[in-house]
Design a protein around this nucleic acid. Structure first.
Lengths: 136, 136, 136, 136
DNA sequence: GTGGTCTAGACCACG
DNA sequence: GTGGTCTAGACCACT
């Protein structure tokens, strides 16, 4: 039987990220961190919507995005499940996206004038929390 | 007397950042890197708009944002100048922005499944290019 | 200046595919067939919605999917453009998807009891219409 | 007397097709391939449901669909049997379905950028496995 | 009950 | 004007 994981997630209204993005990021992180087991059932669209006090469409959008990216399997009439991990993107696409993220990050952070060590330490810490496993 | 720095900047249409953001980031980066000297005059709004082939409103918006953050001084009738360096943001605001940028970066990069060292190395390299000073 | 390609597309109500999917397929096909040039602007979300007599959200969804797949570049405030082609998926993911499509197709077609040659000829013809270019 | 064919079938949870569809496809495929003889009895609805560990309603739905299409005969009180072969669909219906399947397949596959030969070879191979006869 | 799709209409950021 | 996001509520298919 598949446990309906209660799913720890919270929407921060002050966060500049749109709600659907917060849900996507939150779930993806938990999957990567191994806090959600492969095959486990997530809360239903309507259920999570109620829990987070947002519109079901917003949750559906987040679930759809995660499915499109291969993180979730969604089966009409049954529910949404953690998919078996796989490398979906080509090497060039991964490199392109890393570059884009780095450029954006530098742009955001450079103005703050933090010492490089401090920034690196923060990133390193967060990365450490999330990447215990190797390539799928 | 004020040199009219020609200002090396280029707008990349493929870049996902809005144009104003590209201008802001670009100028800020050059100030931080010391490529733009304190007191130097920037091109006029209309001038830069023409040079970059973008809407003058867009350039004005970028200049305004940089002025609001304390990077530029706008002197009516004279033009726009690089402001004297000082602490441009409150401590809490800086911390908040760093945190925001880190979270976003992690969210973007976590899905790519790169080894942490590689990510850190990229960040470190880019940071090194831009932050020769310790603190402002 | 970027031409606003009028975009030949029609929604078939009898088609079992959802509307957004029809739009996605139609545009993707035209891009692959080279009927839409890289960099060309597509009709605006609202414009195409009116042309096809569907809800703007539906068009937006289609455009979003195509952007997520890397076929389109969408720039807020400017419009939607044909992106430069690139291979976004990993080799294994491509193989997986081909397999899935083949299985589904066989399942659909096997019951119809057409001679294999006839089926192959149809596929071949349609494929020929769409694949004049090589890998990006 | 009617042999109770044990019916080799397996439901794949990862398969994007709904369960009823998988059953329909599987049985149809075996009939077409001649693995199920005309007149042979199929497992009862409840029996197959138990064997596959799915809801009996799902099996009943599949059997009904196959009966409606003329592949099975349901004889009250006796069970379900492979029907005698005849033209199960009108000519126009067959053509319509082929067209539909082709369009969907092309839509799925076109984005993967495989050389036409490779796609045709895959289809041809799978078709060969299932269509030993010329016409029914 | 589950997810998927579509419509309608509001509000925001960007140019 | 452009696209992006969210809400609200209806209808459908699947189990």
């Amino acid at each position: 039987m598949t446990r309906r994981t209660p799913l720890m997630l919270q929407i921060v209204t002050g966060d500049p990220r749109p709600i659907a993005r917060q849900i996507v990021d939150g779930i993806r992180r938990q999957i990567v961190a191994g806090e959600l087991e492969v095959g486990a059932a997530l809360p239903s669209v309507r259920g999570l919507a109620q829990q987070l006090a947002v519109n079901p469409n917003t949750v559906a959008k987040a679930y759809n995005e995660l499915s499109a990216e291969g993180w979730l399997d969604t089966r009409a009439g049954l529910g949404v499940f953690i998919a078996t991990p796989r490398q979906r993107l080509s090497e060039s696409e991964r490199a392109r996206r890393l570059e884009e993220a780095v450029q954006r990050f530098i742009g955001d952070v450079i103005a703050l004038d933090y010492p490089a060590d401090e920034v690196l330490e923060r990133i390193s810490y967060e990365l450490g929390k999330c990447v215990p496993r190797k390539t799928a």
